[in-house]
Design a protein around this nucleic acid. Structure first.
Lengths: 117, 117
DNA sequence: GATCTAAATGGATGGCCGTCGATCTGGAGC
DNA sequence: GCTCCAGATCGACGGCCATCCATTTAGATC
């Protein structure tokens, strides 16, 4: 995310003059920002964050019916959160008979984690 | 975030029986999840993410008037985003005369970054 | 096929979010 | 003190979000 701007030196505001130069933001980086922000937004709910946490902790897949009793929300609400996480590309699911098993997509958090450090 | 659950072994659903054990979620971790999710939520907007990115890139402080022209939103909107970031504890500001200078709070992303990896 | 069940979907609702234009605030210069 | 300016705040608006209950879907059992 190479947002390297040439910052204008602080001026003493000679009346009627701009205090700093306008700067151009590189369009290339904007799409990466949109991608990362989308992931962050999906993680911006305590329940979804804990869902991802639980799923990451269990390398294997976790059944929805194991997840529902962990939280104080209804089954449809939890299903909604899982969908949000799926749409953000963070988790995916696999149906096995009656049950649905969720898992964290490998490297799904790679880009955002890299940006953070 | 030690959410260690004893996952019940998958059963063949002997009619009229629960498919898995109810599990208790440790209350202690919930507050940490709320904190991290709050930071993630603040980063869940492309403009705010780019704001943080720009501020992190410049170790020093950046004047608001240098930030506004970077984005396609009005000055009040940008001010609103900066306030959101401030409320999340990610950035802080310092007034110097007419100008306001923003900077990333050191270690503000430490907890969420640690959780991600 | 009839019945039971896990999970997803639909519809409704109250609340928060991003954005804007207009206005307020307070520091600087004259 | 008056004026000008950077930045914050206000009020409004349309849209999305989290949640619920009711229903549907798809699979398994009998």
């Amino acid at each position: 995310m190479a947002v390297d701007l040439e910052l204008a030196p602080k001026q003493k505001r000679p009346a009627g003059q701009r205090c700093c130069e306008p700067v151009v933001y590189p369009d290339v980086e904007r799409e990466q920002a949109i991608r990362i922000a989308e992931v962050a937004k999906a993680l911006g709910d305590p329940i979804r964050l804990q869902l991802v946490d639980v799923l990451r902790r269990h390398a294997g897949r976790v059944c929805v019916c194991e997840l529902v009793p962990l939280f104080d929300v209804s089954q449809p609400t939890l299903s909604h959160h899982l969908r949000k996480l799926r749409e953000a590309g963070i988790v995916d699911s696999e149906r096995r008979g009656l049950w649905a098993y969720y898992y964290v997509v490998p490297d799904a958090l790679k880009e955002i984690a890299a940006w953070m450090s």
